[in-house]
Design a protein around this nucleic acid. Sequence first.
RNA 1: GGGCGCGUAGCUCAAUUGGCAGAGCAAGUGACUCUUAAUCACUAGGUUGAAGGUUCGAUUCCUUCCGCGCUCACCA
Length: 591
Amino acid sequence: MPNGIALAAVAGILENARACGAGRLRRAVSRAVVDHRDLREFPVGAVQILSHFAQRPGQPILFVEGGNDNGDGSSQTKIYNSLFPQKETYLSLEDELLKQRLERIREIEELGYRAYGRRYDFTHTVPGILAGYGAKTAEELVPEVRVRVAGRVMQLRHMGKAGFAHLQQDGERVQIYVRKDAVGERDFKLFKMLDIGDIVGVEGCLFRTRTGELSVHAETLEFLSKTLLSMPEKWHGLEDVETRYRQRYLDLIANPEVRKVFVTRARIVSSLRRQLEERGFIEVETPMMQPLYGGAAARPFVTHHNTLDIDLYLRIAPELYLKRLVVGGLERVYEINRNFRNEGLSTQHNPEFTMLEFYQAYTDYRGLMDLSAELLARTALDATGSATVEYDGRKLDFSRLERYSMRESVAHFWEGEDRPTLEDVRDPEWLSRHSGKATAGEALTDIFERTVEHKLIQPAIIYDYPVETSPLSKSKSDDPAFVERFEIYAAGMEIGNAYTELNDPREQRRRFEMQLAMRERGDEEAHQMDEDYVRALAYAMPPTGGEGIGIDRLAMILTGSRSIRDVILFPLLRPEGPIGLADLMRGLEPR
RNA sequence: GGGCGCGUAGCUCAAUUGGCAGAGCAAGUGACUCUUAAUCACUAGGUUGAAGGUUCGAUUCCUUCCGCGCUCACCA
């Protein structure tokens, strides 16, 4: 290719004039070429090259003229770049690493191994080896312990005719020692070809190295899977937040603590399941695609079913379906699954998030408070090994849930001189003095949110909410301005919401109609009329307590994560655009 | 949606006032049969997120756009 030759010639000339890598020149040329101007003035800097050359007649010419760096701007380097027509000639997009790895695959197969292997029957896992033999001395390993173990190569240290590697499995690592005279010519050739990130199987005996590390003395190697891309750096791991979320698999490989977070999350969910099962709750699954949405105040996602030709909503809550089941006699039900709310994103909000909701017939919000205290204490213990966890430098004790009524909390957490008394907090005049909201209830909620919410670091229950902000809860019989509802707070976040369920179909009809009126006025978050739900209540629902616990936020607190995205494996991000790997691979495909 | 910040090699990070884009790890070649962030020598690797603008000259200054983070608003 003529232009390629020209480039080589330029490189040669510059090599003589000054030690200058071909890569550097290529970049300089490509910069000029990209501009595609006939004349481009270039900085002189310290460049002291005067070189010019012509290719063959009629071919593009690169003319480089240099001067001294005299600092007064009088000397310039000019590149007359007459038309290198295809910049691709110079901007090679080939990925050297990928090319090398594909070549590696060929070599591995030439040796008689599969680059992408089949079943490997291991006798031990890496964590199993560490747990079983990590405490044994060299002498105790003398009756030979043979193991077959597989894992991902995370570190490699070659030393001529021997070498060490660390295999990672389930987030833990064991060292293997491979020497030529132990594994033979062919396996040792394979060992020398390994890249960090490859997955291999090793058979051999356990021993301790001179420095005392438990290791597998390899006798045979099996190749199981080839990495084509390079792993994140061994020391710092993967730190780029965006890459960590987009390529969570890399995050999990490179950052052991991330794995722990998701293991803890799994423990939280299984602990809650087990505790609810023990109390006679059964797990159910209700529709995620709903013709009518309800159970919370939020904007939904809309989708469409083709055959029925109807729009459906991704559920914002399972509440109304779960209560239908209570009507049907499933007196203790729970569901752990995703809700979808079409809202902004933040460190505490992901558009899809996981909620536990449970309903228990014949109890009320007082009963649920006691149950919540037990559930949370036990979950913290099961997930972290302690009912006390540290979050953001504060110790949170889940074994004792503080309880305040909303009014008490305002008085209790007030900062400043004019701390209100409990009498003040129920005085409409005092409330309107401290909030611009129209009604006393809304004002109380407003004041609570501004002065109390962020101070609820210790796990706490706030109970008795104004009726205005709680459309689905049953009113307190002795104070109809308030409802039997509580929320659970910890680390300044709301993590749960519960109430004595409204089970009077007449009242429910009235509240739906109020919501409908709000919809008419353009409130997208107002409830729709769900007449089937009213019909269900009309068959009589037992008095019931219902509660929702945000699993993601609970997981944040119990894992010490500051962002909800750190406890969701694949948080919602904008699509990243073309990756280009498929094109690269296609370009390197042998034909 | 508003405000602030970030974007440089596969990864982690430098780059003086606007003046030749560098290092470590990873990669390639060679040496090394107990290393462990192995070591030693050499090599390669860049559209400085993208597009414009200012300038003799831009990673650096300006504008717009893209992506991410924090924050406010919205939202439980």
